[in-house]
């Protein structure tokens, strides 16, 4: 059994699935954020594998940009979570229900 790129794509799909489950099941803002990062990493793996299967560097360039954007997003997202925590003393997203009703 040789390891074809399809194996890596399957691994990336499983990771994406696990990340989605984490996003839907958790109610803590930080854990949801980490699940989103896991989904981004699964997509990175898909990009690198696909780039290798096609034969040029476009896959790795896409991963580079996804990495940069994810880092910027984490910085701002964590700043938002910290601000929300400062004013409400809770990190559970279920409590942020002011628009309800």
């Amino acid at each position: 059994m040789t390891v074809t790129p399809d194996w890596y794509m399957t691994l990336a799909a499983v990771l994406f699935l696990i990340g989605t489950i984490g996003l839907l099941l958790r109610n803590n803002a930080l854990m949801m954020f980490m699940s989103v990062e896991l989904m981004l990493n699964a997509v990175n793996l898909t990009f690198v594998t696909a780039g290798g299967a096609v034969g040029n560097l476009d896959g790795q360039m896409a991963v580079f940009f996804v990495l940069v954007v994810a880092a910027a997003e984490v910085a701002v997202g964590l700043a938002i979570i910290v601000s929300v925590f400062r004013s409400r003393s809770t990190a559970t997203v279920d409590d942020l229900a002011e628009l309800k009703g």
């Binding site: 690198v48 780039g51 290798g52 994810a70 880092a71 984490v74 964590l78």
Partner: peptide, 23 residues
């Protein structure tokens, strides 16, 4: 393994080294 050396090192520096420390 997939010969993406630069991406691997940048992943460790940025994601594992900086983003997770921030988390």
């Amino acid at each position: 393994i997939q010969l993406a050396h630069f991406v691997a090192v940048v992943q460790v520096i940025v994601y594992a080294g900086a983003v997770m420390t921030l988390f």
